[in-house]
Simulated assay, not measured.
Amino acid sequence: MAAASLIHPTAVVDPAAELDSSVSVGPYAVIGPRVHIGANTSVGAHCVIEGDTTIGEGNQIFQFASLGAQPQDKKYAGEPTRLVIGDRNTVREFCTFNTGTVQDRGETTIGNDNWIMAYVHIAHDCIVGNNTILANNATLAGHVHVDDWAILGGLTGVHQFTHIGAHVMAGFASHISQDVPPFMMVDGNPLAVRGFNMEGLRRRGFTPERLGAVKQMHRLLYRQGLTLEAAKQAIDALKDEMPEAVQDVEHMQSFLAASTRGIAR
Score class of each variant (00 low, 15 high):
A3T: 09
A3L: 13
A3D: 15
I7V: 14
I7W: 01
P9T: 05
D14I: 00
D14L: 02
S21F: 08
V23W: 11
V25Q: 00
V25A: 05
Y28R: 05
Y28V: 00
A29E: 00
V30N: 00
V30L: 08
G32S: 01
P33Q: 10
H36R: 15
G38D: 10
G38V: 11
T41E: 08
T41G: 07
V43P: 04
A45N: 04
H46I: 01
I49T: 05
G51A: 06
T54Q: 15
I55N: 08
I55L: 13
E57M: 10
E57R: 15
N59P: 10
Q63N: 06
Q63C: 01
F64A: 04
S66P: 03
L67S: 08
P71Q: 05
Q72W: 06
K74M: 14
K74R: 14
K74E: 10
Y76T: 06
Y76D: 02
A77Y: 00
A77H: 07
P80E: 13
T81M: 10
V84Y: 05
G86T: 09
G86N: 09
V91M: 12
R92Q: 06
F94P: 00
F94Y: 15
C95L: 01
F97M: 12
T99Q: 14
V102C: 09
V102K: 13
G106V: 09
E107C: 14
T108Y: 10
I110T: 10
N112C: 09
M117Q: 01
M117P: 04
H121K: 08
D125A: 08
G129I: 00
N130I: 05
N130F: 09
T132N: 14
I133Y: 02
A135H: 02
A135F: 02
A138N: 02
A138W: 03
T139Q: 04
A141M: 02
G142R: 03
W149R: 10
W149L: 06
I151Q: 02
G153Q: 04
G153N: 04
G154L: 07
G157P: 02
H159G: 01
H163K: 14
H163V: 14
G165H: 01
H167I: 06
A170W: 03
S174Q: 02
H175Y: 13
H175D: 14
I176V: 12
Q178T: 03
D179R: 07
P181W: 08
P182V: 05
M184S: 07
M184D: 07
M185R: 15
M185S: 11
D187N: 12
N189E: 12
P190M: 12
L191M: 13
G195W: 10
F196E: 04
M198I: 09
E199Y: 10
R202N: 01
R204K: 15
G205E: 07
F206Y: 12
T207Y: 00
P208S: 05
P208A: 03
P208K: 03
E209C: 04
R210C: 03
L211E: 00
A213S: 09
K215M: 10
H218I: 12
R219M: 15
L220C: 12
A230L: 15
A231L: 13
L238F: 11
L238Q: 11
D240Q: 14
E241V: 13
E244W: 03
D248T: 12
H251W: 00
M252T: 08
Q253M: 01
A258L: 10
S259L: 13
T260H: 13
R261A: 11
R265Q: 15
